[in-house]
Every structure is written in structure tokens, then in C-alpha cells.
Simulated scan of single mutants.
Amino acid sequence: MKVRARAATPRARRRRPVSDAIVLTGRTIRLTRRNLDAVLTAMLPSIMLMLVFVYFFGGALHTGTEYVTYVVPGVMLLCAGFGSANSAVTVTHDRTGGIVDRFRSLVGGTPILAGHVAASVLRNTVASALVFGVAFLIGFRPDAGPLDWLAVAGILLMFILAISWLSACFGLIARSPEAAGGFTFLMMFLPYPSSAFVPIDTMPGWLHGFAQHQPVTPVIEALRGLLLDRPAGDSAWQALVWCGGILAVAAGLSGVLFRRRTA
């Protein structure tokens, strides 16, 4: 009877993916609390860029409104994307450090990755709120109503969730945490060829196609329209389609990659 009880324990644990993911989320958050410099490093570039663009370049850029009002949605996405991309480093660190091998026999792959993603969403939600606070201090005054704010929060959370799963995939592919850091550079760069900092029609003509049809632009335009109470056109549903597509592909691919990279 004792042998049966011991043999049943791992099976029982595998039937609790949600509780396992919650436990592993708590572990990742505790690791984050011990490494606050990494959190500050994720937030400070976005805040510094916002201050640089507003105070150094804002007077020379004409966007049809006060520049701080124009640039904040793009900075929010820059912060969310850059912070979420750090999950690639933490996933690679666990995989190459042997932690994944210890957890895999107990909880399986999905709760391990879901724990990293959930911690990323919580961490970057707090970071986004702090960036919003700095934006208010330097003069950002949105016209959004309560429902608009709910929509902004929903789109931003969807984007963070999608990029967190995508970065988890990259973390499973990368051979070292240093290599995984390349994904953070990609997410740091992607908002620049978009409508984040200047209108797309001010860019060279050959860049218009990419800037208009990459995932960051519709998300920024949707946030800008909601925050400023302006028509966003098709940007809202395009943003949801982009985020939903990235999320579905990344979540599915992460399961395949986990089995192959940890076999």
C-alpha cells in the first residue's frame, strides 16, 4: 500500500497544472524581488527615453498635439515589450541551470512556462503603471473615460501576455542567457519603425509598408485612440488579431520546444 501511495503522488501532482503554475509563479516573483536591479533596468530605459523625446526632441517634432500626449502610448508599449522579453533570459537560465530538469518530473512543462509568463505579466503590469505615473507627472493628460481605460488595460495585458509567451519560446531556443538577451534588443527596436515616436508619413517611403503592417503599430494606434478619445479606425481589432495570433502560435510552439529542448 505504501508503494502504491508513493507511485500515485507524481500522477496526482500532474493533475493540478493550475496550482502548480501558481506555485511556480510565486517562485519567479520571489526571484524577481531578490533581483530588483533587473526590474529597474527594464523600466528605466523606457522612462529615460520618454523624458529624452519629450524634453530634447519634442519641441522639434510636430504631431498635431502636445508631444508628450502623442508619445506616451508608444513608450508604454516599449516598456511592456522590453520588460516581457526578459522572460527569455529567465527561461533560458532555468533550462541551462538544471532547474527545469528537477521540476519537469513533478509538474510538467506547461506549468513551468506558465509560471514564468504569469510572473512576467504581473511584473510588467506594475512597471507599466509606474511609467504611466511618470507620464502624468510630466504633463500627460488623457481624455479616456472608464470604459476606455478598461479597453486600454485589456489591450496592454493582451500584448504583454503574447510577448511573454513569445519570449518563453525564444528562451527555449537560445543556448545561453546571454543569447536570450538578443530578444530584448529586438523588442526594444521594434517600436521605432512604427508610429510610436513620429507619424509614419514622415518616414522614408520604402519604410511605410513595414511600419504600417507590423504588430506594434496597430496596438499603439489603438491605445492612442482610446486614451485621447479619438477614432482608432481598424486599429483595435487589428491589435487584438495580432496579439491573439502571436499568443496562440507562441503558446502552442512552446510546448513542442519544451519537449525537444529538455528531452
Rank of each mutant, 00 (worst) to 15 (best):
A12W: 08
R13P: 06
H62I: 12
A162I: 08
L61Q: 07
L186G: 03
D20E: 12
T92C: 15
G115A: 07
A174F: 10
S235C: 12
G109V: 07
C243S: 13
R261G: 02
V68P: 04
D234P: 04
G171T: 05
W242C: 11
G154P: 01
G145S: 10
R259L: 11
F159L: 10
Q238N: 07
I173P: 00
I47S: 09
L166C: 05
I200R: 10
R11A: 11
A196R: 06
T217M: 10
F82W: 15
A168M: 05
A60K: 10
W242N: 07
V75M: 09
R224Q: 11
G139V: 10
P17Q: 05
A151K: 07
A127D: 02
V52H: 00
A42W: 07
L36D: 02
R261S: 05
V216E: 01
A5Q: 14
F136V: 15
R123I: 11
L106D: 02
G108M: 13
F258L: 13
F197D: 01
L186C: 03
L186H: 00
M203G: 04
T41I: 15
T110C: 02
V100D: 04
D148T: 08
P146Q: 01
R11C: 03
F82C: 05
D20L: 12
G109Y: 09
L78K: 05
R141F: 09
I22H: 03
N86W: 13
